[in-house]
């Protein structure tokens, strides 16, 4: 998993509440056997004027020019600024997969749906819940070329006029993100213990270590 330490990036404003996982990645894409490659279909029904299908080549599709992510000034944004209850709906891990694959690294909103929030951390995405007034103020001051710096280490967001906004994140999750450790990476830090366990178990139950 990609580590998250310090990020300075353009911010894309998605001014909608209750954005559900079906909007983030519509259900026809769940038939896919992949975890990568969902980026082109992120917010498919909002981004395009035609209906998306799995494995479709999106380069020639009809873009909805009014949708925020299609506007040239937000191209390359790695921070998504949005409204409350982001990521509600189903538990599909495809939603954070699509956001990350598209290029987002952090999402700022007043609140997130529970399962989605958890799933983000498993996929290198930092969800940042901030008070509604603070989110309002960011929406208000956002103009063309607006960037934010997110410092996970100090748990601060720095605005272009040097305002510092603190945010909360669970210690355990912070540690994993800072070090780019997914659960697998973390467990693999205990490789010696796993090998030790196997050696000891092989004495008690040798048949588990023989391939018949």
């Amino acid at each position: 998993m990609q580590a998250f330490t310090l990020l300075t990036s353009l911010v894309a404003p998605l001014d909608r509440a209750n954005v559900d996982t079906d909007a983030i990645i519509p259900k026809q894409f769940l038939k896919s056997i992949k975890r990568a490659g969902f980026g082109p279909y992120l917010f498919d029904e909002w981004r395009y004027l035609d209906r998306g299908e799995p494995d479709m080549d999106c380069t020639h599709r009809l873009l909805n020019k009014d949708f925020v992510l299609n506007k040239p000034q937000y191209k390359g944004s790695e921070i998504l600024l949005t409204r409350e209850n982001f990521g509600c709906g189903s538990s599909r891990e495809h939603a954070p997969w699509a956001l990350a694959d598209f290029g987002f690294r952090a999402i700022i909103a007043p609140s997130f749906a529970d399962i989605f929030y958890n799933n983000c951390f498993k996929n290198g995405l930092l969800p940042i819940p901030l008070a509604t007034e603070v989110v309002d103020s960011l929406f208000n001051e956002l103009t063309e070329g607006y960037t934010l710096t997110v410092d996970l280490n100090t748990q601060k967001i720095i605005t272009p006029n040097n305002r510092e906004i603190s945010f909360d994140v669970d210690e355990n999750r912070k540690y994993r993100l800072l070090n780019g450790l997914d659960d697998i990476g973390l467990s693999l830090q205990h490789t010696d213990k796993i090998r030790g366990y196997e050696a000891e178990r092989a004495k008690r139950a040798p048949w588990l270590f023989v391939d018949y």
Binding site: E93, D183, I184, S187, L188, I194
Partner: peptide
């Protein structure tokens, strides 16, 4: 699915 990957990679 995330756990399937975890078991494949770590046997744990």
């Amino acid at each position: 699915t995330s756990e399937v990957e975890h078991v494949l990679a770590t046997q744990c």
